[in-house]
Amino acid sequence: MMNDTEREAIVLNSAWEMIDDMVNWAVFMKIDRADPSNLMFQTSGHARLFIILLGDFLSEIRAFKGEPIPLGLKPAPSNARPSDLTFLFHLRQVCADPKLGADTVDLSVAVEAFASWLEGEFVAEDVNLHSIDVVADLRVARCRYIKMCGDMAKHNLARLATNVGHLRKLLAEAGHPVSEQQGYLAVETFFEWFYQDIFIYHSSQVGEFLNNIRWAIYDYLQPEFRRSFHVPARSTAEFPMYSYHVPSGIAEPVAVAMYWDAMNRSRSQPYVQRFVIPDYMKQRY
């Protein structure tokens, strides 16, 4: 059973790693400014990879077939808000009871800003689902449509039953109830509408939210890095070495490895600079 310090090392390193995979200069075209007008994907394939990885980041980590949740992570409460059914829940646990640092204000602000945005709703007007001859104004939470598009980008039609259910519910709430078969027929056009237009527009802002969380983790871990990093006496100019004073509360092998990974990441600043997308690029949807 992981203790809270071990769990924190796992959560922080995992979050940082997932964000590194999404927000980097292989996925996005490199910018040097702190105030870019927007982020642009390198290719359509990179955009698709981004939403698949984002969908995983926004997915709940659950127990499987009665087994405990992997790596000793805590389950979200039964009355969880939507953003608690994402990896943000585990970052919230760190902010509520920090172990490796003391000041989680910036991390909490970054997490809550993204959570509030994800839970917000917008109306997509005149969504043309031509495959079933329906045009509707769909009200949807940002987190819901992003998860749906992430799944649709990753899975074939046979594995989209849950998302067909979500789509049918959105259509019913808009006054257009459809059958299950119609729901399957509408999946592709829903994906085209919400992914190619709305998500591509949102991706710059999502990148900013994720980058802010990454920088907040970096800032939070700096005091621990300075405490932990040291050069062993056996280090020489020919064979330079470094090590970390692993906290006594971290003993499980996976937690020790992830603590080392988190400290190694903390040796240098995140490779994407802090940036702010202007407000005029955040006003639609």
Rank of each mutant, 00 (worst) to 15 (best):
residue 119 E to G: 11
residue 46 H to L: 08
residue 91 L to T: 02
residue 44 S to V: 11
residue 104 T to P: 00
residue 284 R to V: 10
residue 145 Y to P: 06
residue 42 Q to L: 14
residue 219 D to V: 09
residue 262 A to T: 07
residue 229 F to E: 05
residue 28 F to Y: 11
residue 39 L to T: 06
residue 274 R to P: 02
residue 25 W to S: 04
residue 225 F to A: 00
residue 143 C to W: 14
residue 84 D to M: 15
residue 53 L to Y: 08
residue 15 A to H: 07
residue 277 I to V: 14
residue 94 V to E: 05
residue 13 N to S: 15
residue 32 D to R: 02
residue 50 F to D: 03
residue 10 I to K: 06
residue 168 R to I: 09
residue 183 G to D: 12
residue 212 N to I: 01
residue 207 G to F: 06
residue 127 V to F: 00
residue 214 R to I: 01
residue 242 Y to E: 07
residue 22 M to E: 01
residue 26 A to F: 14
residue 76 A to Q: 08
residue 208 E to V: 03
residue 34 A to K: 12
residue 27 V to K: 04
residue 152 M to A: 08
residue 187 V to A: 13
residue 214 R to N: 02
residue 221 L to A: 07
residue 191 F to H: 14
residue 48 R to W: 10
residue 173 E to G: 11
residue 96 A to W: 00
residue 253 P to D: 09
residue 68 P to N: 01
residue 220 Y to G: 00
residue 6 E to S: 03
residue 96 A to C: 06
residue 165 G to L: 10
residue 107 L to G: 04
residue 193 W to L: 10
residue 215 W to L: 03
residue 115 A to M: 04
residue 149 C to P: 00
residue 199 F to H: 11
residue 208 E to W: 00
residue 34 A to L: 12
residue 107 L to H: 01
residue 36 P to G: 01
residue 250 I to L: 03
residue 224 E to S: 09
residue 3 N to L: 06
residue 129 L to I: 09
residue 180 E to T: 14
residue 149 C to G: 01
residue 8 E to W: 07
residue 206 V to I: 15
residue 27 V to P: 02
residue 106 D to Y: 03
residue 196 Q to Y: 11
residue 252 E to A: 14
residue 244 Y to M: 01
residue 214 R to F: 07
residue 54 L to V: 04
residue 232 P to C: 12
residue 264 N to P: 03
residue 21 D to C: 11
residue 144 R to A: 14
residue 239 F to M: 14
residue 140 V to C: 07
residue 8 E to N: 08
residue 163 N to Y: 10
residue 26 A to I: 14
residue 212 N to Y: 05
residue 108 S to M: 12
residue 117 W to D: 03
residue 30 K to H: 12
residue 179 S to C: 04
residue 33 R to N: 15
residue 24 N to K: 05
residue 257 A to G: 08
residue 71 L to S: 02
residue 95 C to F: 04
residue 276 V to W: 09
residue 250 I to A: 05
residue 190 F to E: 07
residue 69 I to G: 04
residue 188 E to I: 09
residue 1 M to V: 13
residue 59 S to Y: 00
residue 53 L to D: 12
residue 163 N to T: 04
residue 134 V to K: 01
residue 151 D to I: 12
residue 192 E to C: 05
residue 84 D to I: 05
residue 11 V to H: 01
residue 285 Y to H: 13
residue 165 G to C: 10
residue 239 F to S: 13
residue 55 G to D: 09
residue 78 S to Y: 08
residue 250 I to R: 02
residue 162 T to I: 07
residue 92 R to M: 08
residue 271 Y to N: 14
residue 151 D to E: 13
residue 14 S to E: 13
residue 3 N to I: 03
residue 52 I to N: 09
residue 124 A to D: 07
residue 112 E to K: 08
residue 62 R to G: 08
residue 235 S to F: 06
residue 177 P to G: 08
residue 89 F to T: 03
residue 122 F to K: 02
residue 128 N to S: 14
residue 271 Y to W: 12
residue 119 E to F: 01
residue 275 F to K: 09
residue 83 S to Y: 09
residue 93 Q to N: 13
residue 264 N to S: 04
residue 146 I to R: 03
residue 66 G to E: 05
residue 179 S to Q: 02
residue 217 I to W: 05
residue 82 P to V: 09
residue 189 T to K: 11
residue 32 D to A: 05
residue 69 I to T: 13
residue 75 P to Y: 00
residue 2 M to K: 15
residue 119 E to R: 08
residue 13 N to G: 07
residue 44 S to A: 15
residue 25 W to P: 06
residue 231 V to Q: 11
residue 59 S to N: 04
residue 282 K to I: 05
